[in-house]
């Protein structure tokens, strides 16, 4: 067990955003968080790595309470890619190098540069290394953000809709890459994702959120026509094509 979320509660201006959310994730698993807009998914991610301080409950990484860790220690354990980010004028190399921030004392070392170099190579971003990130396409930019989170060498990677602005090719490329790296390096991935079929292709486990609570959690079996009707209020048909579940709205 790598990540355990225990009774997490969060409210914003006395409006409850998260209510008693609990789940457990094992090493190397890919987790998809599903639910309609405003169900509390983004808030859940932000509460896990202390961008927001939860009102109650606790998050544990390898049985260590995140709430008791200094923020810099959290950063060494959890990488985070936000949904929206303002694009500042820095080069791809610098943007990824920023991921080494939790480890940098005063100046970057050759080791930091080496790590960034390897990650850039891994994501085939090498040729862009001195390009400014505001000149990149959506897919390349998303990859840079993921590369930055990977430079933190985290145990857990939190992704807030990493594919929402990408075309089909890039969606699949980015998700396949994340899955590959999760397997290789034993990184646990928690990602918010809206496309149910992409989620089914990508994730091992699913959490469905409804009205700021967990509706259901588990393997592929939790994605049912009834569950989707309850969570999204949409009638769907689930078909098996080539042994894969496919969700078709009707």
């Amino acid at each position: 067990m790598i990540l355990r979320v225990d009774n997490l509660t969060f409210s914003y201006h006395s409006k409850i955003v998260l209510e008693e959310v609990s789940f457990t994730i094992h090493r190397g698993e890919c987790f998809a968080v599903l639910g309609v807009n405003g169900a509390g998914k983004s808030t859940l991610l932000k509460c896990i790595n202390k961008i927001l301080i939860p009102d109650g409950g606790c998050v544990y990484i390898e049985n260590k309470a995140v709430s008791k860790m200094p923020q810099i220690e959290v950063a060494k354990n959890i990488g985070y890619v936000p949904q929206r980010t303002n694009v500042s004028r820095m080069t791809v190399f610098d943007a990824v190098l920023l991921g080494r921030k939790p480890y940098i004392k005063l100046d970057v070392t050759d080791k930091d540069i080496q790590i960034v170099k390897d990650i850039l190579k891994h994501l085939s971003l090498e040729k862009y290394s001195l390009k400014y990130i505001d000149e990149l396409s959506g897919g390349e930019f998303q990859k840079v953000l993921i590369a930055r989170a990977l430079a933190q060498q985290p145990k857990v990677l939190l992704l807030d809709e990493p594919t929402s602005s990408l075309d089909l090719k890039n969606q699949i490329e980015v998700l396949d890459f994340i899955k590959k790296i999760a397997r290789e390096k034993g990184i646990t991935v928690v990602t918010i994702i809206h496309d149910l079929n992409l989620a089914l292709r990508f994730a091992d486990k699913f959490i469905m959120m409804k009205d700021n609570k967990i509706y259901s959690a588990g393997g592929e079996e939790v994605i049912t026509e009834e569950a989707i009707k309850d969570v999204y209020s949409v009638d769907v048909k689930i078909e098996n094509i080539r042994n894969k579940k496919i969700v078709i709205p009707i």
Partner: peptide
């Protein structure tokens, strides 16, 4: 480096330990 992280966004800076 903290300021560089802040240049990206507040949330990113926090996620990087600032």
């Amino acid at each position: 480096w903290d300021y560089n992280a802040l240049e990206a966004s507040d949330d990113i800076a926090k996620s990087l330990g600032v």
